[in-house]
Write a protein that binds this DNA or RNA. Sequence first.
DNA 1: GCTTTAATGAAACAAATGTTGCAAGAAGCG
DNA 2: CGCTTCTTGCAACATTTGTTTCATTAAAGC
Lengths: 302, 302
Amino acid sequence: METPPLADVIINSFDGYSAEVRKAARFVLDNPRDVALLSMREQARRAGVQPSTMMRLAKQLGFEGFDPVRDAYADAMRNPATSFEGKARDQQRLQDLGGDQALAAKIVASVTRQLQSLSAAEQLVRLSDAATLLAGARRVYCLGLRASHPIAWQLNYILSLVGDKSVLLDDIANTGSDRIRFAGKEDVLFAVTVTPYTQLTLDIVDYAHKQGVPVVALTDSPVSPLAKRATITIATTTESPSFYHSMTPAFLLAEILAVLVAGQGEKETLEALRQVDSYHASLGTHATTRPHPTATPSKEIQ
Amino acid sequence: METPPLADVIINSFDGYSAEVRKAARFVLDNPRDVALLSMREQARRAGVQPSTMMRLAKQLGFEGFDPVRDAYADAMRNPATSFEGKARDQQRLQDLGGDQALAAKIVASVTRQLQSLSAAEQLVRLSDAATLLAGARRVYCLGLRASHPIAWQLNYILSLVGDKSVLLDDIANTGSDRIRFAGKEDVLFAVTVTPYTQLTLDIVDYAHKQGVPVVALTDSPVSPLAKRATITIATTTESPSFYHSMTPAFLLAEILAVLVAGQGEKETLEALRQVDSYHASLGTHATTRPHPTATPSKEIQ
DNA sequence: GCTTTAATGAAACAAATGTTGCAAGAAGCG
DNA sequence: CGCTTCTTGCAACATTTGTTTCATTAAAGC
């Protein structure tokens, strides 16, 4: 909490307060954390003030009661990186918005908060360890079904840009996972699933685990059923204000993981990327400033 | 709070807990801050558990009641030395980190910054407008190839959970886009591509545009070739400190869009979600609390 | 100095909290 | 199958919570 919430407001109007309210305000200024962590009465006790005085302070600050004040401080503690000024502004603006926009903004805020926790120390260590494991593997099998598909796909896609050792365990006609049969100790299985855990994913991981294949798990808790079979577990949250959980944090983790793995084979990566470019150039996969020969010039396309 | 209090203890004895206590333990593991900031009953509610279960967890951890548990977490939040609150400290730490971890942290920081800009006012308006357009469509065609695949897939997936009007323009044997032939003015094409723009995507959008199909574009610039054919353009950045651009912001936008669209048909959404549940229940798609019959008990797996 | 206004503390309130005990149910065992 | 043990939800408990009200006190204005 770099800039405690309401600090400016309190300081500005401090002189206008009465003696007792000042004591309360002073306590809030000096012990921002306790505002969130202690009961109002306990704070009153410590500030040497009546509970009603805390109440009066809250109202003078423009709140209905003390709970909103505590909420403000609690929010600030939940998300240490975002300064309160920005948050207050956002909060204010949120109330002016329609339902859709407000929900959208809420989701962004929630996911942003979760992303920040991804750079916690152990998280980084795990990512780095997982990257090393993947980079050393003969083959990387990527497994993510249903909601987790984009995550597994993304890892496989990026790894495929820089080499041919990645295999996506997904295919039509229910043959998706067949190739896991060829995995061994020198390979690695990258598996993703979150609540509600896909049974098939667990089954496949279980099989691979028994075959001695190291498993890198990306899931939503260190105690998820996936984590139990994993060599390295990378955990993230999927919380969201909406009915559907967000896969965005997991998606970012997969991207980061892929980039780290690619980075470990520096020379090969560069060489591979050069090949990708010339490959696509000759196929006309991408639009250039001038579209490829068979298409009409872009200006006329408009 | 780098290492949340009791985390090790909980993880270690997790397997010894009963199903309900596990739910509680899991919540504590996943939401360490809320343990300090919320009332026990509120935590029980969020964990989907009875207050008594929280009590049981506390006792199994060797405490008299829940208050001592909360105190432990509160202490961790108060003391900046053991918490990861300090931005400055993070910065400091970054410099001590190895290349991989530093890069990972940088990517997180970069993407976080970009996400925050997604809740800019105009962005929200566009999202909301796009959602309305999509919600009113007879059919929604989702198109995203190569790097943009996860984004289009995600929108289609979520929409498919709550209805049958979404079509993913992707299929094997180069027949992916054929179904766009049936699109008309009452439908909407949701198309995604970023630099380097996939030519095929542009071609398909071009075709649809000529047929009078409204287009919602998700791309990396308001002046991208995709934007020119679009009714509504949602723009985001794909910047990243690494060699590969990040699709995470676009991914989040697609998630939000999907949720907004689903939210517009409130009753139908709820009904559909209920159907989804019973459908998967009868197919056994998802793992239940108890591991499925064929798997060995978790203790032995570890 | 008397009246009006504001500030303070104490008591009372309903609501929510942490906690306990118990009965119904499920799981495990012989 | 019956018996026991463990698990789970429910209802009740006494506290504590946030909040309101009101009488008392201090200050300010004329």
